[in-house]
Amino acid sequence: MNKSDLIDAMAADAGISKASAKAALDSLTDNVTSTLKKGGKVSLVGWGTWSVSKRAARTGRNPQTGKAIEIAAKNVAKFKAGAGLSKAVN
């Protein structure tokens, strides 16, 4: 399912226009993104939690040449599925 499929499904399920569903989805993604940028955490009970984790700098290898390279430290977004979502999938 891609973004437009999700918008169509949200509009049908909620009985709203596609424009309203798109606005709601965009608002969700914008708010999750801005919270994570600030280093916060977003939890939807029973569904899951988004958080930011720091990945340390490390030495890696170029698979073509075998030469060692330095990989910079960075922040990564993580999602941990909640009990409700995990149960629904299994």
Rank of each mutant, 00 (worst) to 15 (best):
residue 24 A to L: 12
residue 45 V to L: 10
residue 1 M to A: 11
residue 39 G to M: 11
residue 68 A to I: 05
residue 4 S to F: 02
residue 79 F to Y: 06
residue 13 D to C: 01
residue 45 V to F: 02
residue 69 I to R: 06
residue 29 T to K: 11
residue 60 G to A: 15
residue 25 L to V: 12
residue 66 G to F: 06
residue 27 S to L: 13
residue 51 S to H: 03
residue 18 K to D: 10
residue 74 K to Q: 13
residue 31 N to P: 01
residue 41 K to S: 13
residue 9 A to E: 12
residue 31 N to K: 10
residue 18 K to S: 07
residue 59 T to N: 10
residue 65 T to Y: 03
residue 63 P to Q: 09
residue 70 E to G: 07
residue 85 L to A: 12
residue 75 N to I: 00
residue 84 G to D: 01
residue 84 G to W: 03
residue 42 V to F: 08
residue 57 A to K: 10
residue 14 A to H: 04
residue 70 E to I: 04
residue 49 T to G: 07
residue 74 K to P: 09
residue 78 K to L: 11
residue 48 G to V: 04
residue 52 V to D: 13
residue 37 K to E: 15
residue 47 W to Y: 15
residue 82 G to W: 07
residue 66 G to H: 09
residue 21 A to R: 04
residue 35 T to Q: 14
residue 24 A to N: 06
residue 24 A to W: 00
residue 84 G to I: 05
residue 5 D to T: 08
residue 40 G to Q: 06
residue 24 A to P: 05
residue 60 G to S: 08
residue 53 S to E: 13
residue 67 K to T: 15
residue 87 K to V: 03
residue 36 L to M: 12
residue 61 R to P: 07
residue 11 A to Y: 07
residue 36 L to G: 11
residue 35 T to R: 05
residue 14 A to P: 00
residue 46 G to P: 04
residue 79 F to Q: 07
residue 28 L to W: 14
residue 29 T to F: 10
residue 45 V to Y: 00
residue 5 D to I: 06
residue 46 G to I: 04
residue 69 I to T: 10
residue 81 A to C: 05
residue 34 S to Q: 14
residue 83 A to H: 02
residue 31 N to R: 04
residue 59 T to F: 01
residue 70 E to S: 13
residue 38 K to H: 07
residue 16 I to T: 02
residue 10 M to D: 06
residue 8 D to I: 00
residue 81 A to N: 08
residue 88 A to I: 01
residue 37 K to S: 10
residue 39 G to E: 04
residue 7 I to F: 01
residue 81 A to H: 02
residue 4 S to C: 02
residue 41 K to C: 09
residue 81 A to R: 04
residue 29 T to N: 07
residue 81 A to D: 11
residue 76 V to S: 13
residue 70 E to W: 02
residue 4 S to R: 14
residue 81 A to I: 09
residue 14 A to C: 11
residue 78 K to R: 14
residue 13 D to I: 00
residue 50 W to A: 13
residue 33 T to K: 15
residue 73 A to D: 09
residue 8 D to T: 13
residue 13 D to L: 00
residue 7 I to R: 01
residue 61 R to E: 04
residue 83 A to C: 09
residue 23 A to D: 05
residue 57 A to F: 11
residue 38 K to N: 15
residue 65 T to Q: 07
residue 74 K to G: 10
residue 87 K to N: 10
residue 5 D to N: 06
residue 47 W to K: 14
residue 24 A to H: 09
residue 26 D to S: 08
residue 35 T to M: 04
residue 76 V to R: 08
residue 77 A to W: 00
residue 74 K to F: 14
residue 8 D to L: 03
residue 47 W to L: 15
residue 48 G to R: 08
residue 19 A to L: 10
residue 59 T to E: 13
residue 18 K to F: 04
residue 22 K to S: 14
residue 16 I to H: 01
residue 32 V to C: 06
residue 85 L to C: 12
residue 28 L to K: 13
residue 21 A to F: 07
residue 66 G to I: 15
residue 50 W to D: 03
residue 20 S to N: 13
residue 83 A to G: 14
residue 76 V to P: 14
residue 28 L to A: 10
residue 1 M to Q: 11
residue 7 I to C: 03
residue 40 G to E: 01
residue 82 G to L: 06
residue 23 A to Q: 14
residue 48 G to C: 12
residue 25 L to I: 08
residue 42 V to L: 08
residue 28 L to V: 15
residue 63 P to S: 03
